[in-house]
């Protein structure tokens, strides 16, 4: 059984490697001085205070929430409708549509970002809130469709037949039979879409104008342009937001939603 122990030990080391940097940032964000040393020389909340009193960071947080919220709304609506159509319908080109859905996910983000920047510049959408939301939606919506499709797969069509046989018109049957059952899937997709948009960086790098900087974009500016230890605090907050979303996603998965 020694190989098993060795393999297990290796696995443990790798997991430590995966988690270490993120865990290291946490204490650094509470460091009292701006010298980056572990353990920190003193403990203080000054970087968080600086974050919360800085107009720039607050604007970035507001933008992140707005863009992610709008993206989630738009993506969930479009994605759920499309998933319903793809699951229940039969029309020529259905396979092509599925392939098209996968395209934004497999295309390197830099290529998507460059393409959208060029196209949006031509129509005046570059550096606008609407343009940013559209771009985020394009890369988030495949996850919504996947999640809803996955939960539709476990949907028993017999339920709809039963509803029809009890006299329910198709619209009512959808609203009161299908939707409640796929709700976890829709919610899981929405959570994934929100997380994708919230963490999205590269599209935002090219498409966001000075007034639309999101948190990731602002962190990048703080790392590249003016070295600011506040980024540790910002990174921790962004990390906590991602963890909340992960928890939500896991909770939904256990309730029947989720992706795969």
């Amino acid at each position: 059984m020694t190989p098993r122990i060795l393999v297990g030990a290796a696995a443990g080391l790798v997991l430590l490697f995966l988690l270490a940097p993120i865990l290291a940032i946490l204490p650094l964000s509470f460091s009292a001085s701006d010298i980056l040393r572990l353990p920190p020389e003193g403990w203080s909340l000054r970087w968080y205070a600086a974050l919360l009193s800085s107009e720039r960071w607050l604007l970035a947080a507001r933008n992140s929430l707005l863009v992610a919220g709008a993206t989630t709304l738009l993506g969930t609506v479009l994605g759920t409708l499309a998933a319903l159509g793809l699951h229940f319908g039969r029309f020529p080109g259905r396979g092509a549509v599925l392939a098209l859905l996968a395209a934004p996910v497999v295309t390197p983000s830099i290529v998507t970002a460059a393409a959208l920047f060029l196209a949006y510049s031509a129509v005046g959408l570059a550096g606008t809130f609407v343009g940013l939301v559209l771009a985020h939606t394009v890369i988030s919506v495949p996850f919504v469709v996947l999640a809803v499709l996955a939960s539709l797969r476990s949907f028993d069509p017999a339920l709809l037949r039963a509803a029809a046989s009890l006299g329910a018109p198709p619209a009512a049957a959808f609203r009161r039979v299908v939707l409640p059952l796929i709700a976890p899937g829709v919610a899981a997709g929405a959570v994934f879409a929100f997380a994708t948009s919230f963490d999205e960086f590269i599209l935002t790098l090219f498409l966001a104008g000075p007034g639309q900087f999101t948190l990731p974009r602002q962190i990048y500016a703080a790392v590249r342009d003016v070295w600011d230890p506040t980024i540790c605090a910002a990174a921790v907050l962004l990390f906590l937001a991602s963890m909340l979303l992960l928890l939500a996603s896991e909770a939904l998965r256990r309730r029947g939603g989720g992706i795969g």
């Binding site: 510049s121 959408l125 550096g127 606008t128 104008g209 000075p210 500016a221 590249r224 342009d225």
Partner: peptide, 16 residues
């Protein structure tokens, strides 16, 4: 700003 005039070009083109 960081002396990158990309955003300026974009805002002039977007007429915003």
């Amino acid at each position: 700003y960081d002396y990158n005039i990309g955003p300026i070009r974009a805002m002039v083109q977007a007429r915003n």
